[in-house]
Design a protein around this nucleic acid. Structure first.
Length: 354
DNA sequence: AAATCGGGGGC
DNA sequence: GCCCCAGATTT
């Protein structure tokens, strides 16, 4: 018997009860309008959904405010300088999203008259918009029914129906179950209600089933095993890589470079480095011959699939490098550097204060 | 199907 | 320290 058949007539009860709960308990977020307040601005929905990919609400809020204040709509964003957008995204991570954000805004302006297409299939063709984001925009911004599945929904649904298959193999079953409980009216609110539930009561570690409006429907809870779902795949161990970054100082400025347009931290402004990657250590070779002094400070930074220990070599005065740009030390916070290099700079400046 | 791609918050 | 997060894209 399939999950959908097993649900029977309870599917409507789940959405009705959860929506009633959402009407009272919805989180207030900058990209939302209160329940019953009509549809939000599609530009805001799109912007928030891109920023929220694999990123917590708490980390996104200030970036959302900054971006929408500086670029209030698709037209303004499409006209922005690439480097300005990349710098504004600095610190949020997954920088391919920033490049795709800009690409997408330009496609919307050039090919869609400045408005997002309203069909899920058409949204799916746009840069940076995958199955989750296309469904979320369709439901939340345009009020059309769509089946929205993110990590919160995966957790809530696997618990509701005790789906014991491991991720990612469980995804088709999860989607089928979400499809079965998604209402035709207010499917956007329903999706957000499921996400609020996953971010709050139905948490990873210690779910608060006693306060959950869906507890009467929840198979995992009834078995006292909510925290066992979803079943995750074993994760591989992260390698430790060694690398070096180079601090080239001249007359109150330091040398910054633009990283390659592929791979780690692509297109971002950065300190020169010795070519470290996720797969191999750097070669330790500086960008040019000089009197290099190796700092005692070592920056440790953990990425998704490896950890980097980065040493910092310092040189001052001539020779002048014939590449990159010299940036004023006292405004390095405005250079738009990824966190790894911000850490390195803080380390050197702290060393000098000591 | 598996690997790649950041960073911070929670515990 | 480890786990996770409003995933998409490439390999």
């Amino acid at each position: 018997m399939s999950i959908v058949q097993h649900l029977g007539k309870k599917t409507g009860d789940i959405s009705a009860i959860l929506l009633a709960h959402y009407d009272v308990h919805a989180r207030t977020l900058p990209w939302r309008v209160p329940p019953g307040g009509g549809l939000p601005d599609p530009y805001h929905v799109w912007m928030s959904e891109i920023m929220l990919q694999q990123t917590t609400v708490a980390a996104v809020i200030s970036y959302f405010e900054k971006f929408t204040a500086r670029w209030p709509g698709f037209a303004q964003l499409a006209a922005a300088q690439d480097a300005d957008v990349m710098a504004a995204w600095a610190g949020l991570g997954y920088y391919a999203r920033a490049r795709n954000l800009l690409k997408c805004a330009r496609v919307v302006v050039d090919q869609y008259g400045g408005f997002l297409p309203q069909s899920e299939a058409e949204l799916l063709k746009l840069p940076g918009i995958g199955p989750y984001t296309a469904a979320a925009i369709t439901a939340i911004a345009f009020g059309q029914r769509a089946v929205v599945v993110d990590a919160n929904v995966e957790r809530v649904v696997t618990r509701l129906f005790a789906i014991g298959q491991a991720l990612p193999a469980a995804k088709p079953a999860i989607r089928a179950a979400m499809d079965a409980i998604t209402p035709h009216a207010r499917s956007g609110d329903f999706a957000q209600a499921m996400m609020d539930l996953g971010a709050g009561l139905c948490s990873v570690k210690s779910p608060q089933c006693a306060r959950c409006p869906l507890a009467p429907f929840c198979t995992a809870h009834q078995a006292g095993q909510a925290e066992l779902y979803p079943v995750k795949p074993l994760k591989k161990d992260k390698p430790l890589r060694q690398g070096t970054a180079f601090w080239v100082q001249r007359e109150g400025h330091i040398l910054l470079v633009k990283r390659a347009n592929k791979g780690m931290l692509a297109d971002m402004r950065a300190l020169p480095d010795d070519g470290w990657t996720a797969r191999s250590d750097g070669d330790g070779q500086p960008p040019f011959a000089a009197n290099w002094q190796l700092s005692d400070k070592i920056v440790q930074h953990s990425f998704t699939h490896f950890t980097l220990e980065m040493r910092i070599a310092v040189t001052e005065g001539p020779p002048r490098a014939d590449f990159g740009e010299y940036w004023p030390i006292n405004s390095l916070d405005k250079a738009g550097l990824p966190t790894l290099f911000s850490k390195a700079i803080r380390a050197i400046l702290a060393e000098r204060r000591d």
